[in-house]
Design a binder for these strands. Structure first.
Lengths: 169, 169
DNA sequence: CCATAATACATAGCCAAGCTATGTATTATC
DNA sequence: GATAATACATAGCTTGGCTATGTATTATGG
């Protein structure tokens, strides 16, 4: 646990680090900001139903039905965690499990109409709650955000990126 | 709980909604993506120390010492939650409490050097873990992200924005 | 073709981080 | 100086993470 002497940028690093230093720093800010936004949303809508629910439904809606394990990987949570979330969604009848005829161990998780409806409703609520915070946005700024979201969504998706640490093992 | 018929955009809304519809939709995507990014970060770094810790330290670093209540508001959590987080940080000696001579009920929360060091270290780890995901970014894309983060950070900050639902009461 | 390994999910049990409701000390107010 | 308001702490609950492990199914090697 080192400390002391951290004025701005770090100078001594591996070669190639010079070029990626701003990216490094950007990523730190990005994640911190992302977390604050998530809190902002939860706080302002103060719904009890949990962010994880919406995140999961969003993934399902974006990518269509998939197996529980795949859903876990896409959501960057472990399989047991996803089992729990899916059980909750199942009890609400927001998703259904479609048996896989080829593999009796697995089933496809598919969102149900009322799950999609609930998600849409939540997004509405969210929009209404957050609009005040983004009130004076110029068209240009709004455009920047739109493009940023598209970039990030793409990068956060599984297929493109390295699986890495947590997922494996 | 309504369901059925949600093909893309909603048409019937209050006046003025037409103009803000894309913003609504943008915000939905934004929050979902933000949450996925937070998970991505947690998953890839698989540190145990919890996002809330870093978020709190970041707020402290950005705005300087402040009272616990203020810190809670900035972080968009309730006061008891912040009490818990601060206790944890205190035990680690990552923050200290500075008694307020004018008001014996309150004290200022200030980050300690080793707290700042830990935060910096985490940001390093984070950068290293996430760089692979953002590998082929063009300069233009990186610039877009930078600008987006700046906009969002500003909007998520307290002073500018409406306090609203959760905080009040 | 059967035994073993690998896979897909479920279960159990733990902890962190949210929340509401309530308590306790201090400060402000009439 | 009593009452109200404020700032934080405590208690107790829920959710959403995690690891470790169990159970059923499928794949594989001799």
């Amino acid at each position: 646990m080192y400390y002391g002497a951290m004025t701005e940028t770090l100078d001594i690093q591996a070669p190639d680090a010079v070029a990626s230093a701003p990216l490094h720093s950007l990523l730190g800010d990005l994640i911190t900001t992302a977390h604050r936004l998530t809190r902002l949303a939860a706080h302002e809508t103060n719904r009890t139903e949990s962010p994880a629910t919406w995140r999961t439904l969003s993934v399902l809606q974006a990518h269509g039905p998939m197996r529980l394990g795949e859903l876990a990987r896409q959501s960057r949570v472990t399989q047991p965690t996803m089992t729990k979330i899916v059980r909750g969604l199942d009890e609400l009848n927001w998703i259904k499990r479609i048996a896989d005829s080829d593999d009796a161990r697995a089933s496809l998780i598919a969102s149900m109409p009322r799950g999609e409806a609930a998600l849409a409703e939540w997004r509405e609520t969210l929009g209404t709650a957050l609009v005040p915070f983004f009130d004076g946005l110029t068209d240009d700024e709004q455009d920047t955000l739109r493009r940023a979201v598209d970039i990030l969504r793409d990068r956060a998706d599984l297929r493109s990126s390295a699986p890495s640490a947590g997922a494996a093992k």
